[in-house]
Design a binder for these strands. Structure first.
Lengths: 201, 201
DNA sequence: TCGCCTCTATGACAGTCGTCATAGTACGGG
DNA sequence: CCCGTACTATGACGACTGTCATAGAGGCGA
């Protein structure tokens, strides 16, 4: 969410759109501003995104979903011993670290797109569902890999991402990471209790 | 959230602003549109809200916070026997019922204001924190009344509202109430386990 | 050299936004 | 009757927005 890749102008614009989405919603992600933030020529917008702002926002949302799913895999790989609470703590920690290091400027771009467009712009709503699905799918896969029964894993993934999104909102409003640490601490035991310990049978 | 009070035009405009905020964020809550939705004269806007749109949005957010807190008290009073899981289920059910009856048009106005303004407009950010505080305070009070230890009640209230907000986002994106019912079902046992049963000591 | 394709540059258009200035109505007390 | 106060009406202004039309670079193959 922080490192701009050294790719071409098109990817830079998608990335910048996501970043501006995070800050102030779709209204704050103006086309001219996206181009400026990406240090990309304004004239390229209509070339790379003939679908206009709608396409740009949708791609930004899709990118964010894939990014989140990728992060889950990385967190999983970095855990000394994989537990659900450990994974959730890592997901939460990413946000607390950003907020403590760089301030509470940004939220989740998928949430922003959902809030601003889910009623008026069908395609953006679909992009948001796809992003959420990719994210929850990655978390659910990680949970099943830890021994959580398959039907339960999906529910817990929804719970994890839901409470994370809500905590992000409250943390940003209060300029305080405590909502994030709170949900992590409260949810930890519940998550770990869902793994079927083979010693139990 | 659904019944417009028969009050004066000023209150109607605040109410309408909240309702439009719910649908498409602050950008969708234009001044002219608020007046039209409230069936209030456009000329009254600058009279009742000399602080401009910022004031209008802030009052809408404050109204939403007080409304949410009031609802918690009502849910509590309507429970046959008050349990944390029962309260949470009632809070969630309000949203599932709205979505099943009226479609997924609206989200939480406080979330919308947070997403769109928390960086640029300090006063709106403060209004959002106040709304969240009022809401979590009401929930925490209800929990302590059920026998949840005081320091735990605040944390659980944050968890409840956080996961509710996140589930609202996902439900709206997917046009499916399942995220809401899922978090309610998954969180129920955890919540009820937090009441200090006096038979346990 | 020519033609072609990818990409960029720039100005203009129509629309919407929040805000303001100004004038007008309604009404209640003096 | 008159004046002040509360509220409404309306048009205009400037600052945006997303989109488009048009034209210009730059490279690459033939």
């Amino acid at each position: 969410m922080t490192v701009p890749p050294e790719r071409g102008p098109r990817e830079r614009m998608v990335f910048s759109a996501a970043q501006l989405l995070r800050r102030g919603g779709v209204a704050a992600a103006g086309m001219r501003e996206v181009a400026a933030h990406a240090e990309a020529p304004r004239g390229s917008l209509q070339h790379y995104f003939p679908g206009g702002k709608e396409q740009l926002v949708n791609e930004a949302v899709g990118w964010a979903g894939r990014y989140a799913a990728r992060r889950v895999a990385r967190f999983l790989a970095a855990l000394p011993e994989p537990t659900p609470s450990g994974l959730f703590a890592a997901m939460v920690r990413q946000w607390t670290q950003e907020y403590e290091a760089a301030g509470f400027a940004g939220g989740c771009p998928v949430a922003a797109a959902t809030v601003d467009c889910s009623q008026n712009t069908e395609s953006t709503r679909e992009a948001a569902t796809a992003a959420f699905d990719a994210w929850t799918g990655a978390v659910a896969d990680a949970l099943t890999g830890m021994g959580v029964p398959r039907e339960r894993a999906g529910s817990l993934a929804t719970l994890m991402i839901g409470s994370l999104e809500g905590a992000i909102l409250m943390a940003r409003a209060r300029r305080d990471v405590r909502p994030l640490t709170t949900v992590s601490a409260e949810l930890g035991p519940l998550l770990d209790a869902a793994v079927e310990s083979r010693s139990q049978h």
